[in-house]
Amino acid sequence: MNWIFLVASTVPTMLRAVPGDPALHIPDGFLNLPISLLGWILTAILLAVAVRRTEGEFSERQIPLMGVMAAFIFAAQMINFPVAGGTSGHLLGGALAAISLGPWAGMLVMASVVGVQGLLFQDGGLVVMGANILNMGLLTALIGYGLYRGVLGQSRGVRLAVAGVAAWLSVMAGALGTSLQLWLSGTARLDVVMPAMLGVHALIGIGEALITVAALAFILRTRPDLLAGTAEARAGRGWVVAGLAAALVVVLLSPFASANPDGLERVAMDLGFIGQGADAPYQILPDYAVPFLGETALSTVVAGAAGALIVAAVAVVIMRMLRRSASPA
């Protein structure tokens, strides 16, 4: 079924007015609420740290820089090159942003790119945006910068080669994250979606790697000062470790899961992620029944009321926040 995904990921790219990799922009409805919320929580934590780190002494210069660079990444995703048979390679940009701007700024930039693509162009959903930012902005920055940081002192050739590998791995990480989230949401079968996603992105990642390396080489040739500045200003050992760890997860988990999806499902089951084999928890509540009440009329009513209550509670919390911020600041 790989070929279907190959077609699926290239055809819409050609039809779309907006650049980017459609296979990684999850729309609303494809992830369940717990996974969506988990994505938002992880994203919010990382972005909060990124905001704190960036609001240091350089922030006044950083704000226009990051804003324009986010627009740059968006525009750079339009730049493509023909590969074969009407398909084309193009840039996602997560690794490039992190390597050229530093990891925290890179994360903020990529979060802005994914956010605007979702808000302005419906390219990726709103409730699932946390997951999308995680897949395309945060994992990519972590791996891209972490690996590159590890070889900063090395020769130009080594740095560029590692940047290429990091770019490829960052795309693979995004694909891995996306397929895991789809599977955990009960939207897709792991044994199909994982190999298909990883297979397609192993190819897409090559395009990403080639453009990233060529772009970095161009920058190193014309303005080497730009890359030196961002990299040296930040301490790096933690990044190297985290980047290597994330890269290892991708390298080890991908083939394992592709070859042996049942194994991964068993692990997930043992960890309590999913209940019963392929039947992942799609809703917080089972469709029509509350477990201890069995499938009775009462159970249906209780489930319905509980669903309504959850929505109402979320609404009240948001309204509360609104009322506070609506009073004159």
Binding site: N80, P82, V213
Partner: peptide
Amino acid sequence: DGGGSILWRAKIAGNMAGQLFLRSY
């Protein structure tokens, strides 16, 4: 598919991205 090898075409695209990066910077 355009001239040159895939590598060469990718390099052109990368140069464009690099150029756009510098202009943006």
